[in-house]
Design a protein around this nucleic acid. Sequence first.
DNA 1: GAAGCGCTAGGACGCCTGTCCTAGTTGCAG
DNA 2: CTGCAACTAGGACAGGCGTCCTAGCGCTTC
Lengths: 200, 200
Amino acid sequence: MAEGAGTTRAQIVDAANRLFYVKGFEHTSFAAIAETVGISRGNFYHHFKSKDEILGAVIEARLQSTRAMLAEWDRDEPGPAERVRRFVEIVIANGADIQDFGCPVGTLTNELAKLGHPARPQAVAVFDLFRTWLRAQFEELGLAVEADDLAMHVLAFSQGAATLSNAFHDGEFVRREVDRLHAWLDERLAHGRPIAGSAH
Amino acid sequence: MAEGAGTTRAQIVDAANRLFYVKGFEHTSFAAIAETVGISRGNFYHHFKSKDEILGAVIEARLQSTRAMLAEWDRDEPGPAERVRRFVEIVIANGADIQDFGCPVGTLTNELAKLGHPARPQAVAVFDLFRTWLRAQFEELGLAVEADDLAMHVLAFSQGAATLSNAFHDGEFVRREVDRLHAWLDERLAHGRPIAGSAH
DNA sequence: GAAGCGCTAGGACGCCTGTCCTAGTTGCAG
DNA sequence: CTGCAACTAGGACAGGCGTCCTAGCGCTTC
């Protein structure tokens, strides 16, 4: 069973991944996925036993692509401070999608929570990936004691910005909020104690 | 047609309000609402022509109760600074529900966005209520120029805290994040320029 | 008592959902 | 060339959904 990117299975996962984000998990029907991929509806069950299994594969794909992205940032960015800033800028890089559909991680996690879906912890694992990675950056910056707290704060920033960007369809707000967090990082990274005069 | 709190119509709106929050709008069926209220399923259409009409009534009820809450805060709190802090503390006061289901405003707005539902702007109006109210507080504090920006930041804080509280089921994180925002307010309200030494 | 109205129960409807089945096609292995 | 496994198409299925209809209840007002 080849797992290449062009296989039918991979196409299903790709289409479902996007549709779960755009329309939500529950509102995405098999018919919609089938239409996107261009295959028959009944054909799914040769690749997945159930819709939940597709969800599992989608989350697994998101985990994998997130790991790849973080590894790329580890490789490309010169230091931990730049890496955190790279994360902060993600809400601008993906600004268009976020305005329309919110954060893929946050919205899926919340939907699964409301559905009482067993795959919820798996979805939270994507958050954990970011959390752990951010924490590692702050630790590398010598802020070991509060590293996890800072990581969660940066994560909370991204969720707040995404939710309001989606609600108000306001790109300028996101820019201001990103700048504010950059200024906060300036203070935090100066010494571990804030300094006066920064206009955050 | 009496509109009192005990009427069947009001009971339907109450039950739908809670269920839309707990299970999401789409995942909430007429059967579930009927069972909660204790009435027949087919009986709905004497009070509402469609599910969307129930949604409209639920959002209207939320707008009304939000206005009442803000008016109460205007009455009870001595000044605008205390009012903003009262808002900030809401993520702790409603901590249990937020951990389980997220923010009612943010999650509904996002769900309606993904569904492409026409009532989305109506749901955003609840956000606007908070935004306008917060802006008024900051204006009263003499921060007229940046009042809306500050209002949006406080709003973003609440959404970030709510989303992660729901994802990680972590109450201590919310407390830390609230304290951080209080410290930020301390700086902001000192003069409009931050002062040194505050451990935010 | 009669009439009328607000309200309700319960079921019928057409549609769409996730699931499952089966017959048929393709392509590789011997 | 044959056989087997992987894969696909298309439809059947049971159940749930929002919607709608109708018969009947209980209360008020002449």
